[in-house]
Write a protein that binds this DNA or RNA. Structure first.
Lengths: 116, 116
DNA sequence: GCCTTTTATTTCGCTTTCGATACAATATCG
DNA sequence: CGATATTGTATCGAAAGCGAAATAAAAGGC
């Protein structure tokens, strides 16, 4: 992908602005990264695994799952093989949210000068 | 710009992850949009103007300026022509922050499949 | 010179998040 | 079984952000 710095900033600005406008309540940077990780990388996802991958403490993950779980963007499930683990799963609503974000980025990228 | 949805999401994830890792304290979505607006669009910028452009209340702008001002990312100045106005100005540190963000996006965009 | 309008900030009570630590539940090792 | 390790959550006080309304300062209308 070829992207000049000024185009990158405009893209970032436009998508962020749409994000702030759009959602009922917008997700924090951490929450967004967690959600994206869950939807982009292969399962299974655990609290510990996410904490390590994002280099944050476990309570941060727990809190984010509380918030996003309340909004039905992710789902918790006990791992029956090792009941200490909690497996984080996708939801229909979460998939839609992600899809909407992707569309938003793609659409705004189209309005950005190419190579130029 | 040509960008598939999956590439867009990966780009977003990677940049956000770097953002969360990198900064001492990361900026909220609103703060980031405000900062980008100040640095992308032509001055002068006022509290009222930013509030209208981003469709938020004025206290939101004031608070964001407090926070970012404390981190020396933006600067306030009284408008001497109309002393009710506050003009928001760029700082060296803010410019560096923006530049770093741009580089981060550009670099990660390079690692994303093109057109595919 | 008042009265009204406009601009930015302050204040209020509330909610959310933070890091750090403590804790409860489960698994593992001997 | 009993000690230890691991996993996720709960709790704590502190900090930050929110919307709504009140306030202070400055400008403009008449």
């Amino acid at each position: 992908m070829d992207l000049r710095p000024s185009a990158a900033l405009k893209l970032w600005h436009d998508v962020m602005l749409a994000h702030v406008h759009g959602d009922d309540t917008d997700l924090s940077a951490r929450q967004m990264v967690i959600l994206l990780t869950i939807y982009l990388e292969a399962p299974p996802h655990t609290v510990r695994g996410l904490a390590k991958k994002l280099d944050v403490t476990k309570p941060v993950i727990t809190r984010a799952l509380d918030t996003m779980g309340a909004r039905d963007l992710v789902q918790r499930r006990r791992d029956e093989d090792d009941r200490r683990n909690v497996v984080i799963q996708r939801t229909v609503k979460g998939a839609l949210w992600i899809e909407k974000l992707a569309d938003s980025i793609v659409e705004r990228a189209r309005n950005v000068a190419r190579r130029s």
